[in-house]
């Protein structure tokens, strides 16, 4: 392999990679986008600042100590979530959140819930090994 062939392969790969990256950056996905500084956006920031992800998953991504919360909003409802946030559990700290923060977190969980269903048993398996919702 000469240097010329090697650089041609390398730059072709880089070009393909950049095309793929920018395609993904440009694309919009679920149609439930929240506006920046909206309650859901603020709720997302609280989710990150409290590091809920260390224990909870969203779409199966995150920690393993607590349950996946993607669809908790529709499955358990606001009152249930509020109760957990207020008193915590023997593992989960009781986050001292004020009313605004609680409602922002709820707005975030609501917008997350609207993006789709996370439970893997709801997915359809095809014969070629791919999956579909």
């Amino acid at each position: 392999m000469t240097d010329k062939i090697k650089s041609t392969i390398l730059f072709t790969f880089i070009f393909m990679f950049l095309c793929y990256s920018f395609y993904l950056y440009k694309k919009s996905y679920d149609g439930t986008a929240t506006v920046s500084e909206s309650p859901a956006d603020k709720g997302k920031r609280i989710w990150q600042e409290k590091n809920c992800n260390a224990c909870h998953q969203v779409y199966g991504l995150g920690g393993y100590l607590g349950p996946d919360l993607t669809n908790i909003y529709s499955s358990r409802g606001e009152a249930h979530i509020k109760a957990f946030l207020q008193s915590g559990t023997n593992i989960m700290p009781a986050f001292a959140l004020n009313d605004d923060e609680v409602s922002q977190l709820l707005a975030y969980l609501k917008s997350m819930d609207a993006t789709g269903v996370a439970a893997p048993d709801k997915l359809k398996i095809n014969y070629d090994g791919t999956i579909e919702r």
């Binding site: 993904l24 950056y25 439930t32 993006t115 789709g116």
Partner: peptide, 24 residues
């Protein structure tokens, strides 16, 4: 650097897009 694109509002406002780029 890509993992900090979420700081730009248009990247994080769409939750699924945010997670896609994050895992990319």
């Amino acid at each position: 650097l890509e993992s900090y694109l979420w700081l730009i509002p248009s990247f994080r406002s769409d939750v699924v897009k945010d997670m896609t780029i994050q895992w990319k």
